[in-house]
Design a protein around this nucleic acid. Structure first.
Lengths: 125, 125
DNA sequence: ATAGCACCTGGAGTATACTCCAAGTCAAGA
DNA sequence: TCTTGACTTGGAGTATACTCCAGGTGCTAT
């Protein structure tokens, strides 16, 4: 699969795909004649993983570490599991922060909806 | 309340508090003699709101817009409600992204936990 | 009165994550 | 053969959100 097809498929720019590979967020992609990238199914798996985790807010650094460990083989299984657990913890914190903010927004919005009838908003918190 | 007390109370650096005020994430804080900031309860409310929304990932720009509208009075009630609704939508998207990533992490972690017993990991997705 | 400390401002510097660009390679069609 | 277009690399530039710093002011305790 070419870079333009992968870019299309995942909604990531070609620059971003090359950047991810350059810094190690995904492992190196094999090239065909002329040095042109030819993405395999496995490459696509890494890209999808990176996209999923990035969209949830995981840092590039965490992804790079995970890829580095994965490339070192089975001795790093425990380290990888620990890394994933750490990231899961981060994610749960972020989840809670969003839940709290959403609750606050819902409260404010309900007050604004009321205010739309009276034309003014007397108290704000 | 002084800036050092506010910094302590909310876990935001003094630099960050001054920065938030400078760019308009919170409205201007009244000064006492010598130009020193003296935060009121209302100021603290704005800071807490900013902290809550920032921790959930809302952009500075959205907060600045909200503060600007709020400072213009009751004519902007509808605009503020719309802005809050937009931000709520963003938040729900982020919530879903995190949920999906967490699910994927949970799956991977469970496979790693299994692999800890056999010492290797045969398949990865 | 003077040393020390908390505070002030304006501006420069940093980290993260892209995003853009120049200059070059290569394969395919006119 | 020549041009076109997709691809390559290395490096520079950008946006966001801080974070740090120099130089200065003013209250307070000795």
């Amino acid at each position: 699969m070419t870079i333009s097809e992968v870019s299309e498929k995942y909604g990531l720019s070609q620059d971003t795909l090359r950047y991810y590979e350059r810094i190690g967020v995904i492992p190196p992609v094999k090239r065909k004649a002329g040095g042109v990238r030819d993405y395999t199914e496995e490459d696509l798996g890494w890209i999808e993983l990176a996209k999923c985790m990035r969209s949830a807010g995981l840092s590039m650094e965490a992804l790079i570490q995970y890829v580095n460990l994965a490339r070192q083989g089975d001795e790093t299984i425990a380290a990888r599991r620990d890394l994933l657990n750490d990231q899961r913890k981060q994610l749960m914190k972020q989840y809670e922060a969003i839940r709290a903010a959403k609750e606050r927004l819902d409260y404010k919005i309900s007050r604004y909806d009321e205010a739309m009838e009276t034309g003014r908003l007397s108290w704000d918190k």
